[in-house]
């Protein structure tokens, strides 16, 4: 018996990918424009405030971790990754060096809300002694139900 070969044409199942390149490049452009490296990766629960002002980019950062992690103080010029410091004198030396290079340099204090004020006081005192002009206290937005 003669066998008739199947001549049914296979329909090609394809996903339309022509617009993928557009989407991908759109995402790349978005990330390039909003790219912002983190100079300090200390995990903190920031205090919440109603009043919040924009903090200039490249400001020097002094972070104080939560009491659970030992209230470790870390410093960064805003351009390099933060480094831990152990004494108040080291904070003064760091801040004085930064201010000597740029007298108008702003400083950010990024501290956990549960940190003992004594620790923040010591950092504030070091910044005052180093003749820092403007300090920003990093905070989250307070909300009505918060």
């Amino acid at each position: 018996m003669a066998v008739i070969r199947g001549r049914v044409k296979k329909s090609g199942g394809e996903i339309f990918t022509a617009s993928m390149a557009d989407i991908v490049f759109l995402l790349i452009v978005f990330f390039v424009l909003t790219y912002n490296t983190e100079v300090d990766r200390t995990q903190v629960d920031l205090p919440e405030t109603w009043v919040r002002k924009n903090i200039p980019k490249k400001a020097a950062v002094i972070s104080i971790s939560s009491p659970d992690t030992g209230e470790i103080v870390r410093v960064s010029t805003g351009e390099e990754m933060s480094l831990p410091v152990s004494t108040n004198e080291e904070v003064i030396t760091f801040a004085s060096t930064v201010v000597a290079q740029d007298p108008t340099k702003e400083f950010i204090i990024k501290a956990d809300e549960d940190v003992h004020y004594e620790k923040v006081d010591a950092v504030l005192d070091a910044l005052k002694q180093s003749k820092v002009k403007t300090i920003y206290l990093l905070s989250d937005q307070r909300t009505v139900d918060g």
Partner: peptide, 29 residues
């Protein structure tokens, strides 16, 4: 290979980029 390169770039930016909190209380000394 364009798709590979593009997705590699996206993943790189997603991992290293942060939407950091950049607002707070200011005070001048």
């Amino acid at each position: 290979s364009m798709a590979d390169i593009s997705f590699l770039l996206i993943i790189y930016f997603m991992v290293t980029s942060v939407f950091s909190a950049t607002r707070g209380l200011d005070f001048a000394l």
